[in-house]
Design a protein around this nucleic acid. Sequence first.
RNA 1: GGUCCAGUAGCUCAGUCUGGAUAGAGCAACAGUCUUCUAAACUGUAGGUCCCAGGUUCGAAUCCUGGCUGGAUCACCA
Length: 595
Amino acid sequence: MEKILTDKVKEAVFSLYNYEVDEKQIQLQKTGKDFTGDITLVVFPFLRFSKKKPEETGIEIGNYLQENVKEITGFNTIKGFLNLVLDKKYWTEVFKDMITDPDFGLKKPGSESKTILVEFSSPNSNKPLHLGHIRNNLIGYSLSKIFEANGYRVKKVNIVNDRGIHICKSMLAWQKWGRGTTPETAGKKGDKLVGDFYVKFEKEYKKQVQSLIEKGTDKDKAVRTAPLIKEAQEMLRRWEDGDKEVVDLWNRMNGWVYKGFDKTYKSLGVSFDKIYYESDTYITGREIVLRALEKRFLFKKEDGSVWVDLSKEGLDEKILLRSDGTAVYMTQDLGTAYQRYDDFKFFRQIYVVGNEQNYHFQVLVLLLDKIGYKWAKDIYHLSYGMVELPEGKMKSREGTVVDADDLISEMIDTARDMSEELGKLDTYSEKQKEEIFRIIGLGALKYFILKVDPRKNMTFNPEESIDFNGNTGPFIQYTYARIKSVLRKAVEKNIEIQKKTDTGFEPNEKEIELIKILAGFPKVVRDAGIQMTTAVVANYCYELTKEFNQFYHDFSILSVDDYETRNFRLQLSEITGYTIEKCMGLLGIDVPERM
RNA sequence: GGUCCAGUAGCUCAGUCUGGAUAGAGCAACAGUCUUCUAAACUGUAGGUCCCAGGUUCGAAUCCUGGCUGGAUCACCA
């Protein structure tokens, strides 16, 4: 419709004022709520050609459009705004498209589709997942769905930072103070157990540093030479040498952690197509660096460490290999990127990584480009914002980290409490009820996070629990459940919904409003994909839901006697429910049949 | 200090990329609506120097410049 109008406006201006306007000057927008009309043309840009007052110009263009576009049945101008009124039949035509196409708004990936790689999660294997990871995982998973809906083939990948000094710290602490404890004997998730030993290490290490300082050692030296850190470093060296004892322990403890992660991923409902491990890719990375060194992109310092100089690009020098030849973070990321291109020949690779790593990714892309990989430009860092507590950043040292598993189960508990109080599910079995509590609790958490623009920092207050009323996941889920309930009742009453639109039935204003919003779904999917934001999907879904709730409140569906009206409203409800389901699916949120 | 990001109602956020009409929601507060398809809903009241100052424009929350405030980052950590 907008396309037709743009052309016609162009025509109008040409025939009225003999001027060829640029399409960019033709601004069409949805008519504001308090005005009559469907689409509004901003006429200010044409005043230069018409040399008339805004209202007159609007009327002239309006007249031309009404004569030449059959869908336009009327118009009005207010100041410089030309509000066009569309024929109600136009909206029933749009409605017809929606009910005949079950995939309305979604593109299916086909064999021709380009591949987008989405990296998310990227945990360290020495600590359990926290709220920050939850945001990361939810954004990554949802974006994958959004890309798929835009017709791309999507590969979800994860990189586990399973190697390095951090995991050695946990291992060492376990050896010293663990007394052979395992997740089974401790009755704890593996990631939690390993995390505990990491904390234990840091605590003991701090004590050692403190006592060294008290004995007169200066702080820097104390930090470097405390026996514990020395032992951890020695352990890392043995790991890199392939020392069997160390590698076996490393495998064992990482195994515990992965089992724990899997549980968290499962309860969050996220999954991956491929998981990469730093312990595999750092070697590739080192080879890339050494090759680039030969080609003189990089330089070596006297102590043997390898660097890249990016001062011409406005950045600093960056280390790529330590003096002892071991790899750093950047080294492994080079290797991982290379490996992934080799695996998937991606059209685009999206890294969902926190904005604290903006600098790192700037360097990574620059470096890959300098080395000569043409696909470097296809890398995009989706720099999502931090989740902050009211008092600031989460700090593990101060014990203010919000644990992922804890938060998830709290959400489910809240859903359970609310639900039992309302007592609407009393006829369900315990198992069915638990499933619904899970859907609702998780829905509240996911929606809470995904409705915020991923790029922005957001605040989470653990004192105030996440809402279940208003602009929330459960609100949307509730509306869905209501729609389902109406449709079930229709079946009980032997009312069959017929896909008919060409009956001359004229929808009322509220119904037209719903159709308008439903018709906007394809654009929402497109915009979400282009802008890479989950927020537009969430906000759209909320708007749709709210509109439906008003309709539901104001009008009866099943108890209407007139067949045409009832059938139309049932179809409208069905499509709305379906669209809600699709939106929530894009966000990775399930919807319940009842709640 | 350099670089990057943010600042919209008491709180949490839309809207900013792509400039348009009287800046929107939810929560919290207050007042209403359940013998009728699920009240986790609906309706209303109240709440704003869109951080500040300039500039561009017919028109600026939106674009530009400067400033203020907050955050991130600039490791032989990841």
